[in-house]
């Protein structure tokens, strides 16, 4: 008997004494897909927020700041200026961009190409090594969705986000979020995300409370997270 068959056999032995029909009431059969089977009662917990867009953005901004992210608000037409200002304040000289990052007014560089913005070198990722990423001062990405209640941005490696290492190794992460990407609650984000993609949920800069439960921001991931919220 293979270890697999033996373990599955043990589980069936362990469950054999269960009364029929046990398990959670209303639970569907396994493999019934991402949406619950027909007839499943709606969850008793909240699955939809009730805030309008400005309130949602305010909540997100507040929660981001609460966990030591920096936040800028801007209109779509001023996005490039806002990025420029953020990079200048940071003093970044070499910044990595993921392929597909579309900054209005900057054009769309091809992977491996470099351009400059106010003297800041912008390098579009074409397979940079970890060591090369470590030499960069920062990275600019978009995101897939943001969750206001928890102050979380989620990257799914889609266009303008790049592979996971990009937002991990450089010490400064500048993330651009459109108002339409913001949801109130975790379940709303789950509905928008696709599990086939590698997902990174980010809530503030890296942090640890491992020493006497004193929170220290900045460990291995970017020590500075800056978010630009874009709304008309």
């Amino acid at each position: 008997m293979t270890p697999r068959d033996e373990m599955l056999g043990r589980i069936r032995t362990a469950l054999a004494g269960d009364p029929p029909g046990s398990g959670a009431p209303g639970s569907g059969a396994p493999g019934s897909g991402a949406s619950p089977p027909a007839g499943t009662p709606a969850p008793a917990y909240r699955t939809r927020g009730d805030l309008d867009s400005p309130a949602l953005l305010d909540l997100l901004a507040g929660r981001l700041i609460d966990y030591r992210s920096q936040v800028r608000r801007t209109a779509p037409a001023q996005l490039l200026d806002t990025v420029r200002a953020a990079l200048a304040e940071r003093g970044a000289r070499r910044v990595v961009l993921p392929p597909g990052l579309d900054l209005p007014g900057l054009g769309q560089p091809r992977p491996g190409q470099a351009s400059t913005l106010d003297g800041v070198e912008l390098i579009t990722d074409g397979g940079l090594s970890a060591q090369e990423l470590d030499q960069a001062d920062g990275v600019i990405t978009r995101a897939a969705v943001a969750i206001a209640e928890t102050g979380t941005i989620v990257l799914d490696a889609g266009p303008g986000q790049g592979r996971r290492a990009l937002s991990l190794i450089p010490d400064y992460h500048l993330c651009l979020i459109d108002a339409a990407q913001v949801v109130a609650l975790v379940p709303e984000a789950m509905a928008r995300l696709h599990p086939d993609r590698p997902l990174t949920w980010i809530s503030g800069p890296s942090a640890t409370s491992d020493i006497e439960l004193d929170r220290v921001e900045g460990v291995h991931g970017p020590r500075t997270l800056e978010v630009i919220l874009i709304s008309p």
């Binding site: 929660r63 966990y67 969750i147 209640e149 928890t150 102050g151 979380t152 490696a157 592979r163 996971r164 290492a165 599990p195 086939d196 993609r197 590698p198 997902l199 990174t200 949920w201 980010i202 809530s203 503030g204 800069p205 890296s206 942090a207 991931g221």
Partner: peptide, 18 residues
């Protein structure tokens, strides 16, 4: 915390990433 700083979710192997 309302949310921990980082959560990683991955499904099998993603070519070119990780």
């Amino acid at each position: 915390e309302r949310m921990n700083p980082y959560t990683s979710m991955w499904t099998g192997v993603t070519p070119g990433d990780g």
